[in-house]
Write a protein that binds this DNA or RNA. Structure first.
Lengths: 336, 336
DNA sequence: TTGAAAGCGCTAACAC
DNA sequence: GTGTTAGCGCTTTCAA
């Protein structure tokens, strides 16, 4: 690839004049400018990203880590963030981590090496390990969950939706509708996302004085298959709840399919509420009630926090908390 | 961020010794090595990506352009490619173009500037404009469609699935089942993907001597809404085909929903075959028949072609063509 | 208005 | 084994 030196030689000027002309900054006579541009074009010139960012310390790129690209929940987040970043002349660079800690570390390393100017970090599980890696970066990072180190020395921001509250709302709704046999399909409770949601369920059940039946409790992995499997287990054990709170739409759809397969009617036999309110929720029959997790807002705020740090030089930590919303559709009505 | 110079100073050696130690290449006494590593750690050292790639001309990153992140069809492609790239020590960097030509051009520019070492380029529409931009890059690019410039001077590779063949198969199947009133919901026929698919439909109809009814032909934009709208139009015009070939799953699901809404039974009143065979196909009731587009294979081959160019220095153009497969499910049976 | 020169941080050839 | 040195391609003073 051509460099400014080759262009300079061709045109018969100095490299700095070429640089000035190309960047449109500083003085350059019209005549030489035109020549330079012409030659640059002919030589198919493109400035070296590496050289430029080595010098300028900026890449104009933001790394966006997503743990699961199969989950439509993250799409809205990407959209929200991209919109803001685009407006500010930043590129959104997506990295699919598959929730893999090693991959996350690798990408954090890339950030630290200056592959991008900042990061939006989405993960199933923030813990000491990956947060330490975040704190080891001088560059700004925004988490899409709430997190606070024990040390209190964090230099990242957070924007998150209260998932605890979301599940709590769903469960409360069932209780208010008079349901007593309420089940829950959640995620791994040793990781943050799973833990919080389950806590929301328990709190609502407690407050409503509804006994928790262990047979109605299942743990999946947020995949559709695991939702289906969990429901199958309850069905074959002949302990099927009348209402089911599910920690995401994918698992809810799995559960719904299992019910249908075994002749259980939704919502008459089993009422279901999912979580995330993705497009999938309206693909099913009946349509799935779900909790809107404001993913686009999360993305937008995350990008804005990043821009504040980068463009305005903010230094203090900021945390933004969003409220979920319950969307009722056909799957959760007491009578259909 | 610390540099090798600061480490060198701290330890009391030269920068090159530090470089050698850190890279684990070349000579360095155990004693100094240990010291250097310790100081590097303490100073939270990370090599500058910019400096390194300026020098080495390599980034170890592959840019992967996807036009629509809402379409699950691309996920498999990403997975297939990532697997291969991972194995070869390359990072997959995703860029969501939203099918926007400007965005595509921007990312091609980034590639040309050396932001990555190669690109997998997925687009709805390859045309002179973006292909010229591809050819202007010295770095290897793989398209996931077939394309050949008039000039014949292309230096990119292609791996694609024969979408023409896919739609042709679907339509043929309906004809073989005795259907005569066959409809088609496709995409914009001014762009490649839409054009090819429609051609497949026409060929099958011609070969089967089945007349094409204009009222059964609709054009959508590959979104669910457009599929729903197209079907609604046919229903309100009271011209509903008995069998419907749809150019992707999303539109097929839209059409299916519209049918249900208006009391039409699938497949008794309208039999449907979609295309892409995404996870969505098994979310519906009845499950959607669809054409498997081997997306994971496409991704894998694309990555392999890239690695051949980068690692083995291949120079000649290669094109790989894959065959689609028809997956029959409940939505297309003559009787259910 | 233009050019010379230093330097961003790293690598690698070469000298010691 | 270790240090010196010369770039990689660009930006940015500063002097002419």
């Amino acid at each position: 690839m051509a460099t400014i030196y080759e262009i300079a030689q061709e045109v018969g000027v100095s490299p700095s004049t070429v640089a000035r002309a190309l960047r449109g900054t500083g003085y350059c006579s019209k005549e030489k400018y035109d020549k330079i541009i012409a030659v640059a074009k002919r030589l198919n010139y493109a400035p070296s990203h590496a050289a430029r960012s080595l010098k300028s310390k900026r890449t104009n790129k933001i790394l966006f880590l997503i743990p699961d690209i199969y989950n439509p929940f993250y799409f809205g987040m990407i959209k929200g963030a991209s919109d803001v970043l685009d407006q500010n002349g930043y590129y959104t660079i997506l990295c699919h981590t598959r929730g893999d800690k090693g991959m996350e570390k690798k990408m954090l390393r890339s950030l630290k090496e200056g592959y991008g100017d900042g990061m939006i970090f989405v993960s199933f599980d923030f813990n000491k390990e990956n947060i330490d890696a975040v704190n080891a970066c001088a560059l700004p990072v925004v988490l899409t969950n709430n997190y606070q180190s024990l040390s209190g020395n964090d230099h990242f921001d957070c924007v998150y939706i209260d998932t605890f509250e979301g599940i709590y709302m769903a469960c409360k709704y069932f209780i208010s509708q008079g349901f007593r046999k309420i089940g829950y399909i959640g995620g791994d409770t040793t990781v943050q996302t799973g833990r919080e949601r389950f806590a929301g369920f328990l709190k609502a059940m407690n407050e409503g004085n509804v006994p928790v039946n262990q047979n109605f409790l299942k743990e999946g992995d947020f995949s559709r298959d695991s939702g289906e499997k969990s429901m199958e287990e309850m069905i074959s054990a002949r302990s099927v709840p009348e209402a089911l709170v599910v920690a995401n739409d994918l698992m809810a759809i799995g559960a719904l399919k299992a019910c249908k397969k075994h002749g259980l009617h939704i919502p008459q036999d089993v009422a279901i509420i999912g979580m995330d309110n993705t497009d999938l929720a309206t693909c099913t029959v009946p349509e799935l009630s779900s909790i809107n997790m404001k993913e686009e807002d999360i993305g937008r705020y995350a990008a804005e926090l990043l821009m504040e740090r980068i463009l305005k030089g903010r230094k203090e930590k900021r945390t933004i908390r969003l409220q979920p919303e319950l969307f009722l559709r056909g799957s959760s009505r007491r009578e259909a």
